[in-house]
Design a protein around this nucleic acid. Structure first.
Lengths: 204, 204
DNA sequence: AGAGTATACGAACGATCGTGCTATCTTGTC
DNA sequence: GACAAGATAGCACGATCGTTCGTATACTCT
């Protein structure tokens, strides 16, 4: 016997969206484990039990939060970068949009992946697995874009794409971390400068 | 009226040391906030109240934990590097010893500063301030060592010492983070390779 | 209009949190 | 060997944790 699909009401959908948006913000500050359902409920202005009913368990809430952050990251960073016509242009835009979304404080604790990835990296469970998988997705995208740029002849074929992606991501990671800790945009500029320097060496 | 200095007993001293060592380890996995006194007490095999009496508050425990990690970092990474006679040698040793202490899993969650710094970066309070200050100490040391190497003529005077320190630390940060998440030493080797490449460019 | 259900709330559960208080050991000093 | 003080444990506290349950509201569909 197959259950008839329950219909979702628009107000519930809106609540769920508001909850997850706030959850993603708070998770970058307090951690995705440190964030409690009670404080989250207070932040969005609803009851603990009402909020909880949307997810059924804290783990489901955490997974939904990660998915929400993932979607927003795609909207703000990845998809806008795809408009560039050349692979090298896409690579530059990916990096610049990443730095801007940190600089513009999309999340108070910097890049969501960095914050949650650092928190969960050494732990176990489905929440950690999801967070690590999405972090790896970024690295994969950068590597692929570099290889496309090599195919287009704008990045030297002698460059190890994975190593170059590592170097560039290292700058972004430290830029993010320093900016979060110091609130000094100089950290973002250091990252920009490092990226440009490295790309100047790699491009033909 | 000046109080006579309280004498500390050796067994208490040993307990305190064991507690803090375990606290530092657990903090890199569960976070310095996520770590609870109850679980820590269970991990070291003593009662919650007995452990608590050593510190008087959780914040004091956290500060003492950070100080312990700081001391160990000096012993394992910084002081051994000072034996090198040249500044460039010291720089290389600092970096290599850092990577080794990650690789050798001195802490299960990688570098203590990175783990705790990422967790507390966006928060407030004395614990965060202490963690951020000690992270800045590393950067300061790398910058100073680079400038000494420039004074010795082994690193090009045209290099911006702060930018070079940023680049190198970025590699270390990502190497640490990737290694913790994947347990793959290839991440450490990527960091080594990036450092060597960057130093090859900067040295005369 | 009435039935059915998604949404939300309040109250309460057992567990655990950080933190006290008190008693019992153990150790170092005279 | 007595005695003060440090070290540790037991117990209890109020608060908060994630979770469950029953119920009231409000929307949607027939």
């Amino acid at each position: 016997m197959i259950e008839a699909p329950r219909k979702r009401r628009s107000d519930g959908e809106a609540s769920r969206k508001a909850i997850l948006q706030e959850a993603a913000r708070l998770a970058t500050v307090e951690g995705i484990n440190g964030l409690s359902i009670g404080r989250l409920a207070e932040a969005v202005g609803m009851s603990k039990s009402g909020l909880f009913a949307h997810f059924g368990s804290k783990e489901e809430l955490q997974l939904a939060t990660i998915e929400t952050a993932h979607t927003l990251f795609h909207e703000l960073v990845i998809e806008p970068a795809l408009v560039a016509t050349t692979a090298l242009g896409r690579l530059r835009m990916l990096i610049e949009l990443f730095l801007r979304h940190v600089e513009n404080k999309v999340y108070p604790g910097g890049c969501f992946y960095v914050s949650v990835g650092a928190e969960l990296g050494a732990q176990t469970g489905p929440v950690r697995d999801e967070a690590v998988a999405l972090s790896a997705e970024w690295m994969r995208l950068v590597i692929d874009t570099i290889q496309e740029a090599q195919a287009e002849g704008s990045i030297a074929p002698a460059e190890d794409a994975e190593q170059l992606a590592f170097d560039l991501t290292g700058y972004l990671l430290l830029g993010n971390t320093q900016f979060v800790a110091t609130q000094d945009k100089a950290a973002i500029d250091r990252a920009r400068h490092a990226v440009e320097h490295r790309l100047a060496e790699a491009t033909t």
